[in-house]
């Protein structure tokens, strides 16, 4: 159970980073931390005590396996996360080129 609580704490750490920090790069890091906490949660959901990796080999057909489906989902989620983070970083670089700063307080063309 303690692991799940830590997982939620990690999620909140990420959320804190996104909401409080003023630096674009730190916001991106916050988003990445949130994503990793959710991935960790998915892996924990599939975990079985004393389970082996889910590969069927000769003589081990009926062994206790961990659930492979969350692992597949996490792999997909990681790929999606790579794409999102790369795009965010690209946009952040462009913003830096236009404004000359990473501080979101100074980046406010849009109002209302």
């Amino acid at each position: 159970m303690i692991v799940f609580i830590l997982c939620v704490l990690l999620f909140l750490v990420g959320l804190y980073g996104v909401l409080i920090k003023r630096n674009l790069i730190k916001i991106i890091i916050g988003l990445a931390i949130m994503e990793y906490s959710v991935n960790l949660f998915l892996i924990l959901v599939g975990y079985r005590d004393k389970g082996t990796s889910p590969i069927v080999t000769k003589g081990l057909e009926n062994a206790l396996f961990v659930d492979p489906l969350p692992q597949a989902m996490v792999l997909t989620a990681i790929v999606i996360g790579v794409a999102t983070t790369a795009l965010l970083l690209g946009i952040a670089v462009m913003i830096y080129k236009k404004y000359g700063t990473f501080n979101i307080r100074k980046i406010n063309e849009l109002k209302g």
Partner: peptide, 20 residues
Amino acid sequence: LEASFKYQVLGGISSMMILL
């Protein structure tokens, strides 16, 4: 660029909610 960044951060949070 600024609008896109804002959209992405909020969209990212919502995606994480959905994944959770």
